[in-house]
Amino acid sequence: MTAQVSTQIYEGGFSDPVFGSQTVFRAVMDAMANPGRVIDLGQLTQAPAPLEPAAGAVLAALADYDTPLCFEAQNNADAAAWLTFHTGAPVTADRANAAFAVLVSRSAVGTWSDFAIGTSSFPDRSTTLLLPVEDLRSGKRLTLNGPGIEHAADIAPAGLPEGFASAMGENAKLFPLGFDLLLVCGSELIALPRTTRIMEN
């Protein structure tokens, strides 16, 4: 596998790791604190395909030796090598042990229950999922409420997996356990933490 990895993996990290990762973290924190808000992470990193730029930036800012990464796609060699080179994060196939998981577009929601949802004593030990979508604004309207949302927030991502809303509903029912999810598209993302309740209109 390593033999086929291109030299691309050595490039595209933060040109200023201290301020670059701070900028991305603050944007992700803003997204998590305000579920449903579309947040642009900018172009501080250039991750190899098929990693969405936003997913690459989130992981470059937050992953390291302590956070096993899981890739759902098979064609992830470049992306995995890029992340390991820039962050030191180990790649794992063990979903229950992954701190972050990069899903494929239209990932099968039925398999998401393999990811860590934490334990009653440590609900924080759960996977953060990064789900690529086609677009964050032109899809069917979903209404959100929960912490971080004053009354209700609308999102309209396009290209969601089959059964997305009900899978997220099941996840919310597990609270305080559950995974947290980021919808990524281009350099933008929307956070859907486990507390967010989603209603199809």
């Binding site: 973290f25 956070t67 609900p123 924080d124 933490p193 507390t195």
Partner: peptide, 23 residues
């Protein structure tokens, strides 16, 4: 930076589970 990343991850989980104390 490694310490900041560890704390930042804890903050994100803390936001996802309001009121729960993340070690």
């Amino acid at each position: 930076e490694q310490t900041k990343r560890m704390i930042r991850r804890a903050i994100l989980k803390a936001i996802a589970i309001p009121g729960y104390q993340v070690p």
